[in-house]
């Protein structure tokens, strides 16, 4: 089992996502929340952070995607949308949670 990393900052403004990917172990789960969900959109200058990360699983919180007008068809392939219950499940099913701000 590996850790869950939550990232709540826009990848265009802060390096939280980039470095969470860099420092996390193989099999880590990375959940994008709040402004972090901008990192889940495809066709952006930051897309390669996620598409180029091997061995990590990416999630994005549904309510935050909706609030920011990011429709499912704009998401990078492989990013899984979770609701609050899914968030809790991730927390419970991983070793520990690290909040990257």
């Amino acid at each position: 089992m590996a850790d869950l990393f939550t990232v709540n900052k826009s990848p265009f403004e802060k390096n939280s996502l980039e470095n969470a990917i860099k420092f996390s172990t193989e099999g880590a789960s990375i959940l994008l929340i709040e402004d972090g969900v901008y990192g889940a959109s495809k066709g952006t200058a930051c897309e390669s952070m996620i598409t180029g990360a091997a061995g990590k699983k990416f999630y994005a919180l549904k309510s935050d995607l909706k609030a920011r007008g990011i429709a499912d068809d704009r998401l990078i392939d492989g990013v899984e949308v979770v609701d609050y219950a899914g968030f809790v499940e991730l927390v419970c099913s991983t070793d520990k949670t690290q909040a990257w701000l």
């Binding site: 826009s10 265009f12 403004e13 402004d35 901008y38 549904k62 309510s63 935050d64 909706k66 609030a67 920011r68 007008g69 429709a71």
Partner: peptide, 17 residues
């Protein structure tokens, strides 16, 4: 400019937030 352009993106729905 920068992330500010997101302020004008249409289709935002904060009902669950």
């Amino acid at each position: 400019a920068d992330d500010g352009v997101y302020q004008l993106v249409k289709g935002c729905d904060t009902s669950e937030s």
